[in-house]
Nucleic acid binder design. Structure first.
Lengths: 125, 125
DNA sequence: CAGGATCCCACCTGATACTG
DNA sequence: CAGTATCAGGTGGGATCCTG
């Protein structure tokens, strides 16, 4: 964890995996929801477009985070699931989730502070 | 940590903080190197431009992650440091760092695997 | 020293249409 | 079903020049 050695390429690498608007959401669903088909993910993430979903899934696949299984059958069927390696991201996703949750509260409290700063301070609700 | 509740806005919030090419690096330096002046950061991150450094610092400041202290003096002096709240990101940055480090090794090993896949498999080194 | 202002481009993102 | 192809828009990021 040295500060000066060629800056922290490690955190950048991690960001390289997580960067991309939909990747954390995809990982979240695959981690906690298990194997999913393409359209299942699409339903779970209604605001994503096919293009972007495909895009992000491909990148995660190339990075060995998720696995893509194609079934050679007439109604195409493709499944996505976490690789063992991808599962190592779970603690990170979990921390991100928890930090995000507390961050949301933090911001809400800041709002309140601004709202009540003119009211009586004795009211400690 | 439910899967279906309005998708995981929490992880997205966290990404909202960390997104930006230079933010993790900046946070890394401020977390482990302490208070830094503008040009100190610029020296520590040689490939960043003034514009982007300013940009990312401003965003982190607005998000209450870092604090910007301006000294009203003739040779301008501005210091940046983590807020108490920003410091709560430390475990996250640390996990990102560690995961990134192991990821780099993981990828190096994949390269090696591809290199030796034609050699004798009996060599279990 | 610590930026602000401008120009520029690549790529990220999205909507729509089409296909094996 | 699970994409691909194409077009269009917005934004992140970078280079350069200028300033209090």
């Amino acid at each position: 964890m040295s500060e000066n050695t060629e800056m922290c390429k490690e955190t950048e690498k991690t960001m390289g995996i997580l960067a991309g608007k939909w990747k954390p959401v995809i990982l979240f669903h695959l981690l906690y929801g298990g194997t999913k088909r393409f359209n299942e993910l699409k339903r779970l993430i209604p605001t994503v477009t096919q293009k972007m979903l495909t895009n992000q899934l491909r990148e995660l696949e190339q990075q060995d985070i998720i696995k893509r299984i194609v079934y050679a059958q007439v109604p195409p069927k493709v499944e996505y699931l976490m690789t063992d390696y991808g599962r190592s991201l779970q603690p990170l996703i979990e921390i991100m989730y928890e930090w995000g949750a507390s961050h949301i509260k933090h911001m809400e409290n800041k709002e309140k502070d601004l709202t009540v700063d003119e009211k009586s301070v004795t009211n400690s609700d």
